[in-house]
């Protein structure tokens, strides 16, 4: 039985849609994404670049730059309240306090003109009623926790005096300094060296377990997901195509895209002569996509309905959902095809 049940749902994203207005048309970066995060759970969001992972998470925090971006629909329910309907002030109380984020590029995510101490202390004092000294002490504790050596003196440095990995540690310390319930980590290791990557991931895992923080981990690295996440959502062209518990997904992938992704991870036990699998082609541009499964040109099991309608989400197992016509019944396909043809005429 799953240790996460409906009672301790922390965040529920329902049919989230975020569109961007561009010169060439409307870019549907996120087009109906739904998933849930339970307390203390680590959820992985996986997909190729440009599939809408980051925008999904910016939308959760309502941080999508507008214009050109706009959240056009959906709900993000955090502990029973819909974030989308909150006032600016209530929203600020959630940002950084209940839900915090760390970003992809630690080089640019810290303000280069302010000392680390300033940036950390202001965060703590923003959400907690403490004095400057207390906030500073807490900041130093957090820095020690994330493994910054001689934190007492380093706290007064400027960001450019830290290395990339160290900066990401500072970001994590800052993000968790208010004991957030949910940490959104947007590709936290992409800009770092491989050795540092492992350290940072280990750190996130350790701290989230210690503090009981739920984590949404955005990555394109299935290996990372396998090591860290309880649950995985696979995204393609702005939608979740498959979601399942990590072990379930790896053992029993349902969507051809997921299968392709898993097959393309190099295996240590595979023979060297064997060619590494790769999914042919490129992901589509999400501007003006016709109503169809966006993956069908790259799919090796396309049928007629794939080119005419988007598949519905089907539950195929315990907490395992997939959006693919292959897992629909014959009647459903026929019906969809008919409806689509009618629409076209």
């Amino acid at each position: 039985m799953n240790k996460f049940n409906n009672a301790n749902v922390l965040l529920e994203v329902k049919d989230l849609r975020t569109y961007f207005k561009t010169d060439n048309g409307i870019l549907k970066a996120v087009d109906g994404v739904s998933f849930t995060v339970h307390e203390g759970e680590t959820v992985g969001l996986v997909g190729e670049s440009g599939c809408g992972k980051s925008v999904t998470n910016l939308s959760i925090m309502r941080l999508v730059p507008s214009p050109p971006g706009k959240i056009v629909g959906g709900e993000v329910i955090y502990k029973g309240t819909d974030i989308m309907t909150l006032s600016e002030k209530e929203l600020r109380n959630i940002r950084g306090n209940k839900i915090s984020m760390i970003f992809q590029d630690p080089m640019t995510s810290l303000n280069p003109y302010l000392r680390i101490s300033t940036q950390m202390i202001e965060t703590i004092r923003l959400h907690q009623d403490v004095t400057k000294q207390e906030a500073r002490a807490k900041a130093i504790r957090m820095l020690q926790l994330v493994g910054i050596p001689s934190a007492e003196s380093r706290i007064d440095c400027y960001p450019h005096q830290f290395s990339g990995g160290m900066r990401q540690r500072v970001m994590i310390a800052m993000a968790l300094s208010c004991n957030a319930d949910l940490l959104i980590a947007d590709e936290p290791t992409t800009a770092l060296d491989v050795t540092i990557q492992a350290q940072i991931l280990e750190l996130i895992k350790k701290i989230s377990q210690e503090m009981g923080t739920a984590v949404i981990l955005i990555t394109h690295d299935l290996g990372v997901v396998a090591g860290m996440c309880d649950k995985v959502c696979v995204m393609y062209a702005g939608r979740v195509v498959e979601s399942a518990n990590t072990d379930d997904l790896y053992e029993n992938p349902m969507h051809p895209y997921t299968k392709g992704l898993i097959a393309s991870v190099p295996k240590m036990d595979g023979s060297r002569e064997e060619r590494l699998f790769s999914i042919e082609g490129q992901p589509p541009n999400v501007i003006d996509l016709p109503p169809c499964c966006p993956f069908h040109p790259r799919c090796n099991r396309t049928c007629e309905v794939c080119t005419h309608a988007y598949p519905p989400v089907k539950k195929t197992g315990d907490d395992h959902y997939v959006a693919c016509w292959l897992h629909c019944s014959e009647e459903e396909r026929e019906e969809a095809l008919k409806a689509a043809r009618k629409g076209e005429n």
């Binding site: 010169d23 082609g281 490129q282 589509p284 541009n285 501007i287 016709p290 966006p294 069908h296 040109p297």
Partner: peptide, 22 residues
Amino acid sequence: NEFDQVIVGTSLTKEAWKRLKK
């Protein structure tokens, strides 16, 4: 590509002209 979307970008100068005309 299969969606009739242009997959090769136009040259930088062309893009710039397009932006300028707008």
